[in-house]
Design a protein around this nucleic acid. Sequence first.
DNA 1: CCGCATTTCCTAATT
DNA 2: GGAAATGCGG
Length: 737
Amino acid sequence: MDSLIPTGRVPDYLNRLNPEQRAAIETTDGPLLVLAGAGTGKTRVLTTRFAHILLSGRARPNQILAVTFTNKAAREMRERVSALLGEPAEGLWLGTFHALCARMLRRHAEYVGLTSSFTILDTDDQLRLLKQVLEPYRIDTKRWPPPAIMGVIQRWKDRGLVPDAITAAEDTDFANGRCAEIYTDYQSRLRQLNACDFGDLMLHMTEILRKHPDVLAQYHRFFRYILVDEYQDTNTIQYLWLRLLAHRSDQPSNICCVGDDDQSIYSWRGAEVENILRFERDFPGAKVVRLERNYRSTRQILAAASGLIAHNEERLGKTLHPGREDAEGEKVRVISVQDSDDEARMVGTEIERLRADGHTMSEIAILVRAGFQTRAFEERLITLGLPYRVVGGLRFYERAEIRDAIAYMRVVNQPSDDLAFERIINVPRRGVGATGLQKMHMHARERQIPLTAAVLEMLGTGDIKGRAKEQLAALMHTLGTTRDMLGREGHVVAIDHLLEESGYIDMWKADKSPDAPGRLENLKELVRSLADYENLGGFLEHVALVMDTEDRAGEDSMSIMTLHGAKGLEFDTVFLPGWEEGVFPSQRTLDEGGLKGLEEERRLAYVGITRARKLAIISHAANRRIYGNWQSAIPSRFVEELPAEHTETRGDTSNSRRSFLGRPAVFGSTPFPLVASRRVHDVTPSTSKASGMKVGVRVFHQKFGYGTITSVEGNRLEVAFEKAGPKRVIDTFVEQV
DNA sequence: CCGCATTTCCTAATT
DNA sequence: GGAAATGCGG
């Protein structure tokens, strides 16, 4: 293809790139893998490449398919491409995997038994639907909780397996091998409801592309170039979808995937690092460009992070070098403290000092492994009066009042949306209980009609009695008037009417709990945001797929968040607390994932350190309060793996890994297996009384009778009772016999 | 059908 | 320690 750029003149946007970045952008044709280390200008390469393809005349805006994982990334990319082009980028196929698939699927829905107006279910709906499907199976939900079964189905979908593809061998470990049946039923219920869950968007679209060569050919004609962000996070179905779109006979696969195998931290939700490791085999003739010049962090930080990640086996191999000469910086600090309260105190003190020295608060972050760790820091920061925000709590669209309001809108938009109707039928209370709802379900199933229609019929025949009768009649009337208003007065007015007349707003006005005013405020905000969309349908598509809201640019506050949440962000100073065996690396990951799990934890540690521009402060405590009781802990193996010449150790040295030598690091099934002696630090009063409680001791329990202790964990015992079987009990409730 | 008491569980989190 | 689900009495 002819270039529109005059020969001999390098366009502006290429001039300020380093040679690797330029190679990543100018290698436009054929498969390309860009291995972009942390802070090496990944987003810049991606957006500049996009603009370059357009500006050099290789493709028109709608001939590039650009895929991201999150809406945030898609938004950012759109903005930066627009900036490079000097005009708003419109008509692009740029979005998340799911948004792009939804857009395609609306055009071909009939191939998978749906209509183009299919509903996209959220996580709540999925689970509610699965529970309904589960009913006739009479499965012990204690042993096989519905969310776990949902997980099995989702993982099958992630791997591109339709119900028919599930082999018996695949379906052994769960719900007595009946998951495949459940999966089949669940899928047919979805089809009846004209609905998709998130997994279906990918699964259906991939099936269509696979079975209908004409459809595939159509997209091949469309897309000349494919760009993929965060390729290390793709799961199998996303890989299959990409491969179908990329592999073609008429031209080379112009697919460019950008990613970093060292930052793959999402295997637990289906991501396959193997996709990126295998790229060169999947796309013959592929070129690989490594971006290793880091412009973010100091040399000390990069060296510490590189030394740590070098302990991983499964990697393509890549070393970060400082991109600037002047960036020597401070060594990574490793601080040892007595207990988790001391740790919070230490972090608070350090932050106060940073603030006194004039550091901007928003340039400081505390990155934790798990959500439960945030509380200690929050409490400390409140005491000190330091502004902070916890990133990644409940988001706007996850709040109960927002989900309820959206369910109301869904029923208006699509009267056959049974799941939405079920959510709101008794909110506010309308005298409909489990039994009443069941009758309605039976009626609906008999007559093969949606729930709303069943309610109307039953109101007519007098099958609904009492308080429910009047209230439901009023609800149905409100739904009807709202639909009328939708056409005449616009969706904003109509929805306002709906939430008022249905009594939903009044329900919160009557609520005396302290968070009710906030909820009303959220509802107002929701109605206000409706105005940004042309119609109700457009709004609902947005909330189904774009479940995030713009970060509100607030005051100058520091961030507390999980390591996962911090990926892609950067701060001057980063605190990394809780580097203890069992916490980080997480015991559960070790138990379930073995060596692979450990390597993923190590990548998480690598992500954490590389978030810091100037200073990283790692800490570990000798004793930690977990779920209410004290447990002792030993420093994380990652502390030892940091190259000593790039770290500076402070604090109580008796709490080093050395003093725990002789206890081999093993993967065990018991929680915190390295710390058999943790009860030494147990300060709960119950232990003194129960000090004789050891494995093998025979005990008597008022309710369960006689038994033998099989495990001891703090004051919690597991006892094999002779009559009652294995039970977990608190030590004070049994007597030694 | 509702509200209160008791019991149970506890990784990460996007679409 | 605490949220959320379950169970029980009114």
